[in-house]
């Protein structure tokens, strides 16, 4: 029995490598996309604002699973064929980027005018003001919402199993079918819980770190 659990754990762990890769790529690029999207949304350039509003409306308003199907099964119809991993990564980045755009925009807009005025009378330009004064303060304010998204992403990553990507969940599913045992699912659940707990801990540490100044 113990050997079996160890054996299946190893198998599921292999699958979770794909989950980790997807998680990492999505986390990095969707945050970058979110920052750029948020800066665009507050830029007061009407066309850019409209485009970004359309973007967040579409990607927050439709199921992630639909978007995943669209990228993997839909795009080939248009002559664009993606391998499962790039299709999944692209979908997740664009989807999470939409959420981060709105979260970061809200964070930036919550910083009072006084901070911009103080920076301006000290001679700072827009770029300096944003990068040194506004965004660092925004980080603290968006941490709780970002933490939620970070945990959602762990769970959402399991959706890629449906386009045949061999992730953590799919590895468990294969083992369940092969061995006719429920244990692989339990192991998968434990894995997800461990990953989520690590992320929660990381964000709690970050929040502690940023709490020094207020």
């Amino acid at each position: 029995m113990f050997d079996y659990i160890l054996n299946v754990s190893g198998y599921v762990l292999e699958g979770s490598l794909v989950t980790f890769q997807l998680y990492l790529v999505t986390a990095i690029f969707s945050v970058i996309l979110g920052v750029l999207g948020a800066l665009g949304k507050i830029s007061k350039i009407p066309l850019l604002e409209s485009i970004l509003s359309f973007y967040t409306w579409v990607f927050r308003g439709t199921p992630l699973l639909l978007q995943l199907f669209f990228a993997y099964y839909g795009l080939p119809v248009l002559g664009i064929t993606l391998e499962p991993f790039p299709a999944a990564a692209l979908t997740f980045i664009v989807n999470y980027g939409a959420y981060f755009t709105e979260i970061f925009r809200g964070g930036i807009e919550s910083i009072g005018d006084g901070q911009y005025e103080a920076a301006k009378v000290l001679g700072m330009n827009y770029r300096q003001t944003m990068s040194r004064i506004i965004i660092p303060q925004t980080v603290k304010r968006v941490l709780p919402a970002t933490s939620n998204e970070a945990i959602n992403l762990v769970k959402d990553s399991a959706l890629v199993a449906v386009i045949g990507l061999g992730d953590l969940l799919r590895a468990a599913k294969v083992a369940v079918t092969r061995d006719f045992s429920i244990i692989p699912f339990i192991i998968a659940a434990v894995f997800y819980l461990i990953i989520s707990s690590v992320i929660v801990t990381v964000f709690r540490k970050l929040e502690e770190k940023y709490s020094v100044y207020e």
Binding site: G114, A118, V121, L122, Q128, Q137, K140, Y213, E214
Partner: peptide
């Protein structure tokens, strides 16, 4: 010109020293 506001408008994420050296270094 320098300006002092009614509501202080200090940078809350920086220490007192950080507030003072920010603009001289950056600007």
């Amino acid at each position: 010109m320098g300006m002092v506001f009614q509501g202080f408008n200090l940078f809350p994420h920086k220490t007192v020293m950080g507030n003072l050296i920010e603009a001289p270094i950056v600007v």
